[in-house]
């Protein structure tokens, strides 16, 4: 079980919660389970969500493992100039 921190735009999809618990070992599994448990998040995930694991931001890599006890933050998949 990992605690997943949500940014504001995702919270309505989780009934207003800022943190949800998900049983996931990788980013791929995390996205799949979030979409299953909180269908409202699906469009956000489709549009692009980045995952910060202990402060390092992964924008693309699904295989990345979610280490035990790591701090996991979801963020919009940002754009740049």
């Amino acid at each position: 079980m990992a605690d997943i921190h949500l940014w504001g735009a995702l919270r309505p999809a989780a009934g207003g919660a800022s943190v949800v618990s998900v049983n996931a070992k990788t980013i791929r599994e995390l996205f799949r389970k979030l979409a299953e448990d909180y269908p409202g998040m699906e469009p956000h995930i489709a549009r692009g969500v980045a995952v910060s694991i202990d402060g390092k931001i992964y924008r693309d890599d699904w295989q990345r493992e979610l280490p035990e006890g790591a701090e996991i933050y979801l963020l919009p998949r940002i754009q740049g100039g």
């Binding site: 940014w7 910060s52 402060g55």
Partner: peptide, 14 residues
Amino acid sequence: AKQGTRASYGPVYG
């Protein structure tokens, strides 16, 4: 902010 600070957008800085 410094190493270990929680950024205002969520994660903790390296």
